[in-house]
């Protein structure tokens, strides 16, 4: 069977110790049996490793930060599209999803397809909205509230018992054991990711995760549960293993069938000692460990691109349990000329 030629633009090329999902998504796409993918990387920083990984990324363009607004982003995409004829755009950062979702209609008119959650789906699963989300969909979630200052926290601190989890709107989470630590982490996260800050009840247990893809009609196209077996000091999985857990699959099914989630998703869950599952976060995209799902038999990046192209995709029927990943670091040698080219011209 002849493969479908497709040009996919995607971000998340920061394959560092706290990696973006770009490179794992690309690995899935490059291994596709039905797609012949030309990969156009979108990078924010000159030192994102993916820019220089030419066996995976065919061409990379520098793009403006989402915080610069929709128009600068669209202007850049228009230029890249003129050169590359992008057919599918896969944003891999939480922080850029809003910009891309807002631009979905314009992108579609340009001929660029996406497969993203709706704005409502995106907004209601925010960390700050998790208690309402849990109530609405009948999912156990830890108690949480948002604060814009330490003064705000002092007003609500009686509702929490220490330790608490201090979380940024998009990224970062720290466990704080007293008010002083809450204050330290509040300022640390606020300085990096802005306000508000989410204060969440700490649920004791084992963190488990599910990567899943929804077709937007209430069906789960694929889902693979995993437990991190090695966690870095930044809380990132450096190793993981696929699990056989019907409760996790049922919970995923329940969320997708009720929300009609469209696109990739990572569910972050805590399994308590009494085997209860608490949902602590929903990430609205494929996670950096998605290649484990590919290796376990579910090429979710491929399925996502096919859905974006409007193709029918049959749900995956299973996956290999006990499949492991172990991340490693590698010193890639790069040419100064390439770095110069990307730094000065914004493409390489």
């Amino acid at each position: 069977m002849e493969k479908i030629k497709v040009t996919v633009a995607l971000s998340g090329l920061n394959n560092i110790d706290s990696p973006g999902p770009g490179i794992p998504v690309i690995r899935g796409l490059k291994e596709s049996r039905v797609l012949d993918v030309r990969v156009v990387g979108l990078a924010y920083e000159n030192l994102e490793p993916g820019i220089y990984m030419h066996d995976l990324v065919d061409k990379t363009y520098k793009v403006p930060y989402p915080s610069d607004g929709v128009e600068p982003f669209l202007d850049r995409i228009r230029y890249i599209h003129q050169v590359e004829n992008i057919q599918v755009l896969v944003p891999n950062f939480d922080s850029e999803l809003f910009t891309v979702m807002k631009s979905e209609k314009v992108l579609h008119e340009l001929g660029i397809n996406t497969f993203l959650p709706t704005l409502q789906q995106f907004e209601e699963r925010h960390k700050s909205n998790l208690p309402e989300y849990g109530k609405k969909y009948g999912v156990k979630v830890p108690y949480s509230d948002t604060v814009a200052s330490i003064h705000d926290f002092l007003k609500i601190q009686d509702q929490f018992e220490y330790p608490v989890v201090v979380k940024g709107k998009f990224y970062d989470a720290y466990i704080a054991y007293d008010l002083e630590q809450v204050s330290i982490y509040f300022h640390k996260i606020a300085a990096k990711w802005g306000l508000p800050i989410v204060i969440q009840e700490f649920v004791r247990g084992t963190e488990v995760n599910v990567v899943a893809l929804g077709d937007g009609r209430g069906n789960v196209v694929g889902a693979v549960p995993m437990r991190k077996t090695y966690i870095t000091d930044k809380g990132k999985g450096w190793g993981g293993i696929t699990l056989q857990d019907q409760d996790m699959m049922d919970l995923t099914q329940k969320i997708f069938s009720q929300t009609h989630w469209r696109g990739g998703m990572e569910l972050e869950l805590i399994r308590t000692k009494s085997n209860e599952l608490y949902m602590i976060e929903i990430n609205p995209r494929l996670p950096a460990w998605v290649y484990l799902a590919v290796a376990a038999g579910q090429n979710l990046p491929e399925a996502l691109v096919l859905l974006a192209l409007g193709k029918e995709v049959n749900p995956f029927e299973g996956y290999e349990v006990g499949k492991m990943f172990i991340r490693y670091s590698y010193d890639m040698i790069c040419d100064l000329k390439e770095f110069e080219h990307f730094s000065t011209r914004g493409e390489v």
Partner: peptide, 17 residues
């Protein structure tokens, strides 16, 4: 029944990893 035991004595709990 979610426990796999190989002849080498390696035990794997598929539910917890």
């Amino acid at each position: 029944n979610n426990i796999a035991i190989s002849d080498s004595g390696f035990v794997f709990d598929a539910r917890t990893g």
